[in-house]
Each structure stands twice: as C-alpha cells, then as structure tokens.
C-alpha cells in the first residue's frame, strides 16, 4: 500500500477539523427560546402540572 505523504496527511486532518458553526447557531436559538419560556413564567405552570397525577393520561378514569 502506498503511504500518504505527511504534509498531505496533516492537511486532510486539518480539513477534517473544520469547526461546524450551525450547531452553535441552533443551540443559541433554543437557549433564547428557553429564556423566553422562563420569562413568561412557564416553569411554574409546568411544575404545577407535574405535581398532579393525570389519571386520564395514564389510562385510568
């Protein structure tokens, strides 16, 4: 098998190391969505809901 020259190998490694920006954009968008949810006071509503047993949800009642 032919050996890959070191310089070429390093280049291919560098190319592979290109940082993807899109995940950070998506993450930032959802962080804002999360913060907007917190500002509207939704966590307290979620907490209230999760303290109640939803009987019809679990198939009873």
């Amino acid at each position: 098998m032919e050996k890959q020259p070191v310089a070429e190998k390093k280049r291919s490694v560098k190319e592979k190391r290109k940082i993807r920006i899109l995940p950070f954009v998506v993450l930032t968008v959802f962080l804002f969505v999360f913060l907007a949810g917190v500002l509207t006071g939704e966590p307290s509503r979620v907490l209230e809901q999760s303290w109640q047993i939803c009987l019809s949800c679990i198939g009873i009642g």
């Binding site: 962080l31 907007a36 949810g37 979620v46």
Partner: peptide, 8 residues
C-alpha cells in the same frame, strides 16, 4: 404558556 420553556 405556549410551550417555550419545554421546547427550549
């Protein structure tokens, strides 16, 4: 309360 916290 439109689901922003949960979606976030």
């Amino acid at each position: 309360y439109v689901g922003l916290y949960v979606l976030g």
